[in-house]
């Protein structure tokens, strides 16, 4: 077995049995069932979701705590480290595909369904519809103002790109062993991240109140909010990951050669960054 307390270098680390996974499954069951109840107006719903979320948090603290502990006790050798790298890369690939589904939907409505709805055959059903983008479709009457690219979105782009830069500086500092610089630049990244989120939240409220642009504003509203919303959700996760990294650094974790968790968070952050650039171009700008 790999966890060899006598200290002989194990060939590969195989973790001990753990009850965290099943805890997580239970949490997801609660949340899934709870959300289903919630959306169908059963009073228990939100509480179940909350309970599930608490269990999930416990699981995350427990599980990740365990991983951090193992990592700090240097139980992961180079081979395990490489596994983590492969794992994280493929995970990010799966996230890419998740966003691809929504970008695909955006492409489809803009280039297929909306033009088609204004096409000749459809005059029978929607005689007065002229296709254009943005649109809320041939049926809905509400008037809304679409998002502008210039303004907060542009600012947010600058913020996120900058945060990618500061993170890289932090990474270099880590590799060079400059703990002070590392902390400062990482903190700067996190602050930028939360600023982004704050502005995004402001933009949403503004859309709802001033622009009459809602989730239910036809396909434009749907694609806009779902894409930016899932992105925002990922930024939140990324920022939390970075915050955890900062906390670990403050506790003295990581050194120049041993800091994959930090790199993983950084990869994730860059991924989120790239998605934003796509969003900015495809959703706001074009």
């Amino acid at each position: 077995m790999s966890t060899n307390p006598t200290g002989a270098a194990p060939y590969y680390f195989v973790p001990k049995p753990s009850y965290w996974p099943i805890t997580g499954s239970f949490a997801l069951l609660l949340m899934g069932f709870g959300a289903a109840c919630w959306f169908n107006a059963y009073a228990a719903g939100p509480w179940l979701v909350l309970a599930g979320f608490c269990v999930l948090l416990t699981m995350m603290f427990g599980w990740f705590g365990r991983v951090i502990d193992e990592s700090e006790h240097r139980m992961y050798n180079a081979k395990v480290d490489l596994s983590f790298r492969w794992g994280m890369s493929w995970f990010i690939f799966s996230e890419v595909m998740f966003f691809a589904a929504f970008f695909g939907a955006l492409f489809y409505v803009r280039n297929m369904s909306v033009p088609d709805l204004g096409g000749l055959d459809q005059k029978l059903l929607w005689p007065n519809f002229t296709p254009a983008w943005p649109t809320n479709g041939p049926y809905l009457k509400d008037v809304f103002t679409p998002m502008e690219a210039i303004g907060i979105p542009l600012l947010n782009t600058i913020i996120l790109v900058t945060s990618g830069g500061t993170l890289t500086v932090a990474h270099h500092a880590l590799k060079a062993g400059h703990r002070g610089a590392l902390k400062a630049w990482l903190l700067a990244t996190i602050v930028l991240g939360f600023t982004f989120l704050f502005l995004q939240a402001y933009e949403y409220t503004n859309a709802y109140s001033a622009l009459n642009l809602k989730l239910s504003t036809g396909v434009y509203g749907s694609t806009f909010f779902m894409l930016t919303g899932f992105h925002g959700f990922h930024v939140t996760i990324g920022a939390l990951m970075l915050s955890v990294m900062l906390a670990r650094i403050l506790r003295g974790h990581f050194d120049a050669s041993h800091h994959f968790a930090f790199e993983a968070a950084a990869w994730y952050w860059h991924f989120v960054d790239v998605v934003w650039l796509l969003l900015f171009i495809l959703v706001y700008w074009m």
Partner: peptide
């Protein structure tokens, strides 16, 4: 993940008024 995306759009169409799959809203 693509399937997850598809059923997520279904979920929001069902409950949150999105129009991905609804011609009336341009979907």
């Amino acid at each position: 993940p693509v399937l997850a995306g598809a059923v997520t759009m279904l979920l929001t169409d069902r409950h949150f008024g999105t129009s991905f799959f609804n011609a009336a809203g341009g979907g």
